[in-house]
Computed example of a mutant assay.
Amino acid sequence: MWNETVQLYLNPGVVHEALQDDLQQHLKNLPGLGHFHLGRNLEGSWGAGDFTLDLSFVSDAYQANTADSLARLPALARVDRLAYQRIGGGQRAVGLENGIWRTLLLRVRPEQDPALVAALERDLLHMPAYIASIGNWQLSRVCSDSTWTHVWQQEFASMEGLLGEYLTHPFHWAWVDRWFDPEFPEWTVEAIAHAFCAQTTSLLTLPVNRKALQ
């Protein structure tokens, strides 16, 4: 499988609903597409676009088709698109419905010791053991040409699970935050983009052979 996540930035004055309709028509007939999800980023997202688009293809042979489809949409000012490969994750909310889909893009410092990058990855994957509101989760490394290096995705049952327990949890601030703070010697992540949107059904537990239009 070839998985991509995309931040879509709209031109001023564009009607969001019109973009959703156009984009869904462009994408649903793409060859090789297993499933896709388009969600409008909610208030509180930052460093991200207006929409989060997630795509899953049977292979990497269909990248040009996606680029052409997005280029034909005049509503888009720019696109931040990347592919990734999963390195770890878990599930404990397989039947999750009407939840929140959160995407965190990370860029680690290029000069950082690989051992510290690996430790950052381990700490991120340990977060669900302490933070019960994370229903499903996945950490991936970027495998395409991009300024980003990692994608950290989670699913929550509610907004409170993300903005409440997750973002304010002691494990988050007392332990994981050191990787993101230049004042700590372990500082590893130099930039992030934080996006979250509504989802109808779980994406991380979606069968790969089902095309989802949400």
Rank of each mutant, 00 (worst) to 15 (best):
A174K: 13
W175A: 03
L167W: 01
G161A: 04
L167K: 12
W173K: 09
A174F: 00
L163K: 13
F156M: 05
V151L: 15
W152D: 12
H150A: 05
G161L: 10
T147P: 02
E160S: 14
E160N: 15
H150W: 13
P170W: 03
L163N: 10
T147Y: 00
Y166C: 01
E155T: 14
W173T: 08
W173G: 12
F156Y: 15
T149G: 04
T168W: 02
P170Q: 05
S146E: 03
P170K: 05
F156K: 08
L162K: 09
V151S: 09
E155S: 12
L167P: 01
S146M: 03
T147A: 11
W173V: 02
M159I: 14
Q154K: 12
W148L: 03
T149M: 04
E160I: 07
V151F: 07
H172P: 00
L163G: 01
H169Q: 06
T149E: 06
H169K: 05
L167S: 12
T149V: 07
F171I: 02
P170H: 07
H150E: 07
S146H: 04
Q154M: 15
E155D: 10
W173A: 06
H169N: 04
V151G: 05
S158K: 09
V151Y: 03
V151Q: 09
S158D: 14
H150N: 12
E165P: 09
F171G: 00
G164Q: 10
E165F: 10
H150G: 02
E165C: 02
L162F: 10
A157F: 06
E155H: 09
E155M: 11
A157V: 07
E155R: 13
M159P: 00
W175V: 12
Y166N: 04
S146R: 08
E160Q: 15
S146Q: 05
G164S: 08
A157T: 10
T149K: 03
T168E: 08
W175C: 00
W173F: 01
W173S: 11
S158V: 08
W173Y: 00
H169D: 08
Y166W: 11
A174T: 01
T168S: 14
F171D: 01
T168Q: 14
W152Q: 02
H172A: 01
H169G: 02
T149C: 07
W152N: 11
T168V: 01
A174S: 06
W152V: 03
F171L: 01
T149W: 10
F156D: 06
H150Q: 14
E165H: 08
